[in-house]
Design a protein around this nucleic acid. Structure first.
Lengths: 181, 181
DNA sequence: ACAACCATGTAAGTAGTTACATGATTTA
DNA sequence: TAAATCATGTAACTACTTACATGGTTGT
């Protein structure tokens, strides 16, 4: 479970409120670890209780922004977590199960429709990542931090390219030689 | 959530008991949708209650094998599910969060250790998939079902290759120019 | 002042994990 | 006949999702 540490990382980069963090999760960190705003608020409360972050005492009351800052204990925790050992997460993807199911019971034309519908979504995300890379890394990065950030972005690019490739191959199988339906 | 349909797919291919299915999940379907035996037993009970599978009335009593067979309602359900529309699952990987965290707080040498430790695991799995492909698809598959099975296997190969590549690039950043720790 | 929206949060339910329990079968 | 193992299951917990609620702010 990486949500607390994803939030700590985001707060190291920049303090922020729950809604600001939710926005960042839709744009950058969330490309690699998605979270809803409910998860984020709950987790921020836990992080505060653990003494890893603190809420700046801005305006009070419900419905007012609460900006969180990372504390040194939070940085320490992030460092500790970085040194933990974990297993590679096994691939878990519904589309793979669907393709195997189609192999078992026969492909329906609607599965081809579904793959065709999803292909442009992957192409769009790929384009987004490529634009970010062109914008932020037009020069080869020199610091280790920038190199790591670029690596993560390149991993996103490779991941979407992977899906574009699989989708196209799936369509070749599901579509053209009038074998569908 | 794909577990019930992963199980239905497995039972279309071949009837089996909970423990046999758990074994298959460790070998084939589970490469793409992992499940523990507890999940499998619970889900099989649900599938039976839904009328999608039935337990063959073999030996009774606790501790005896209970072989499940798919029913026609189960096949229908699988077909219905194949035509459902779903969103692409966003990438969610802990290592990506770690790499970003390392960019934010500075890389520790133990993160390089961790990447180095995981690289051979990906290489092994890659080798396993390639052996399965060489064994099962020495001839180009002719049926659509076999083509789909091969596609899924190739997706597994591409996925592990992706991780091998990321791991090596991460090590180049984390390791050599004496920037670690 | 009323509507629309924003930020925070609660509640309930589902999926998945980890630890443990029980009966049957096999093996020493 | 005792120990080890196998097959099935229960219990408790954590993570995540979906739907909804509440108070504050902003625009008309």
């Amino acid at each position: 479970m990486s949500l607390p540490h994803a939030l700590l990382t985001a707060l190291v980069e920049q303090p922020g409120s729950g809604s600001e963090l939710a926005g960042r999760f839709d744009r950058s960190i969330g490309y690699f670890w998605h979270a809803t705003h409910q998860q984020i608020y709950r987790e921020l409360a836990r992080l505060e209780e653990a003494g890893w972050v603190e809420a700046l005492p801005a305006e009070l009351g419900r419905g007012r922004k609460k900006v969180y800052c990372i504390l040194s204990a939070g940085r320490d925790e992030l460092g500790r977590w970085l040194s933990e050992s974990t297993q590679p997460q096994p691939l878990r993807d519904e589309m793979m199960v669907r393709l195997r199911a189609a192999a078992a019971v026969g492909a329906s034309s609607s599965l081809a429709d579904e793959v065709r519908r999803r292909l442009p979504l992957h192409l769009e995300k790929l384009e987004t990542y490529r634009q970010i890379e062109a914008r932020d890394f037009s020069q080869p990065p020199s610091t280790q931090a920038a190199q790591l950030q670029r690596l993560v972005l390149q991993a996103g690019i490779a991941y979407e390219s992977y899906w574009v490739d699989i989708s196209r191959k799936a369509l070749e199988i599901l579509e053209p030689p009038s074998t569908g339906e």
